[in-house]
Nucleic acid binder design. Structure first.
Lengths: 333, 333
DNA sequence: CTGTTAGCGCGTTCAC
DNA sequence: GTGAACGCGCTAACAG
């Protein structure tokens, strides 16, 4: 059985109140000798306060929740997690992560968050319907949330946006204005099979539109590296193969470079390739990967949004941050 | 303010006990009409039971905790997470994840787990000292744990091991017996800078030993793709370059393939390359990657260990599973 | 079939 | 400086 404050108190010959005061580091004065007895007793018993009881009483968990789509490991998620952990540490919060990669997980996450697992949440999901499911289920809770998303209907929480559509359009326009005539889009499932184009696909379509409506070539396959390789191989083996591929992720774009090279095609000579995300790996591909995304992966501003809200006296009004995205032209285009 | 069971009770004109019985799905008989009133009231107020109060009272959280080193995204972690979530769902548990990528996070995880966030934990860390810190801090709690590790001192919890050393030795021996004379080892920081060789490094050393003590060439750089590329470039640019590289991860091995090709070296002609992990990406590299690891990524047996322990009447004795690893020779060696 | 009651472990008044 | 007593929101035992 886990030791309780009562047991510590008995062992130290004090009351539970004194144990609480000593261990929660309040400024209430406690005699040095008493304090030491309590500390010794706690150590001896291996006592750690029960967080459920503590949060029930204090009506705060001192925890924040990070909600991510997957452990598939986009570097953005990793950096975001690091920045969150760091600031949480500094402000005396713990971090727990919820992984939401499908509808069932979105429902589960709603339950857990409604159940009060944390005082606030930082949410970054890829896949519009997952986000809708989650935020819809949380709308009436007033839980402090920061959402990284370009979606709509995000009232009541802080929102962090990127100029994704415009930046992708710029990248595709670059391809078109440097002489590419058949630009293919390789997207993620949720984009390609959505009823209304958004995000990266919308950027692609916008660019085609602006440039006199070049042919639309739209495929999936950007969800993982193997699928991307296979998709790119298919595209590039066709007799009327594209002369450029705009991939919805850098990982997919790098797979496409491999596919092209394995088919004996030169990049960017025969086919130009551009990705999204600006991950470090793009610097070691051959040729180096052209991409669009943030220049620096620093999310302290995002994270600060959450903690400022948590620690404010008055709930601040919903804020919005727009991060900057840049087209980075390298060797692959 | 979040609605409480009391408010639901008042709205439905029943007692809080009835609310509890209706919503927690106990078999206590409740009149259909009463039940409906409670359900309506709960829905109307947007009531979700406070998990802190519930676990305090039930002395169970109905949660399990997944502890991982990072979101860097080894596919193994992703599959493990999927299998855990699935079985948790089926058995009525939630899953929260703790991310332990450094010493501070290990300490934080100890606090959180000691604080009682979950009824059990599934732990898979890379980095011996992190694991020691975590398990040491949890040793006296009796928390049900399943640990995926080849370390020692893991009494009291279920352990899942791999024949890592022997399998890696086999891979390196394969290189030596196919005529390679200078086999380099590219490892992760925690292996290379450890005082006592273990794991993949130990496998490498064992193979050298067995084959008459070929020269040891040991570098770091396997922690991320860019570092691996740079390290491999350095190794392979040297006048007495190795004619084989055994990398501690498939991702690093693939970076090494790129590095070799960018230097105009043929793989496996000039340099053979072997990785660890058997990730899918090895099938689309050129040449395909030789590797050592599990043939199937299925972790239901691991996950079952945890839930069986959680749901058993009597705590079962500590179990041990040894998963099989195989050397898979492909084109790169 | 339903209501009343007594804690779960802790933090916080209020007395002393 | 310290202890006793109350209640956070909920479930489980016991009455009725």
């Amino acid at each position: 059985m886990r030791p309780t404050a009562r047991q510590v108190a008995e062992l130290a010959n004090v009351s539970v109140a004194t144990v609480s005061y000593v261990l929660s580091g309040k400024d209430r004065p406690v005699a040095a000798e008493t304090r030491q007895r309590v500390l010794d007793a706690a150590r001896q018993l291996g006592y750690t306060p029960n967080q459920a009881a503590r949060s029930l009483r204090k009506r705060r968990t001192q925890r924040v929740c990070l909600v991510l789509s997957s452990f598939g490991g986009v570097p953005t998620d990793a950096r975001l997690a690091t920045d969150l952990h760091e600031m949480a540490d500094a402000r005396g919060y713990s971090v727990v992560t919820l992984s939401v990669y499908d509808e069932a997980r979105a429902q589960a996450a709603v339950e857990v968050l409604r159940g009060g697992i944390a005082d606030g949440a930082l949410i970054r999901l890829t896949g519009g319907h997952l986000e809708q499911g989650l935020l819809g289920g949380l709308a009436d809770t007033g839980l402090p949330m920061v959402v990284m998303s370009n979606g709509s209907g995000l009232e009541g929480c802080d929102v962090v946006r990127t100029p994704e559509v415009e930046a992708c359009a710029e990248a595709v326009e670059h391809l078109l204005t440097t002489g590419r005539r058949r630009v293919a889009f390789m997207g993620q499932r949720y984009e390609v099979y959505s009823d209304k184009p958004e995000g990266r696909l919308l950027g692609y379509l916008t660019a085609l539109e602006r440039n006199g409506g070049a042919e639309r070539i739209i495929t999936g396959g950007a969800d993982d590296r193997v699928a991307a390789y296979q998709t790119a191989t298919g595209l590039l083996s066709s007799p009327d193969r594209p002369d450029a591929i705009f991939a919805a992720s850098d990982r997919a774009a790098i797979s496409a470079i491999w596919a092209a090279r394995d088919l004996g095609l030169s990049v960017p000579g025969d086919v130009a390739i551009v990705g999204v995300g600006n991950i470090d790996e793009g610097l070691i591909s051959n040729p180096q990967l052209s991409t669009v995304g943030p220049l620096r992966h620093d999310y302290t501003d995002v994270v600060r949004l959450l903690f400022d809200r948590l620690q404010a006296e008055e709930p601040p009004p919903a804020r919005e941050i727009v991060r900057s995205w840049t087209f980075v032209r390298r060797g692959s285009s």
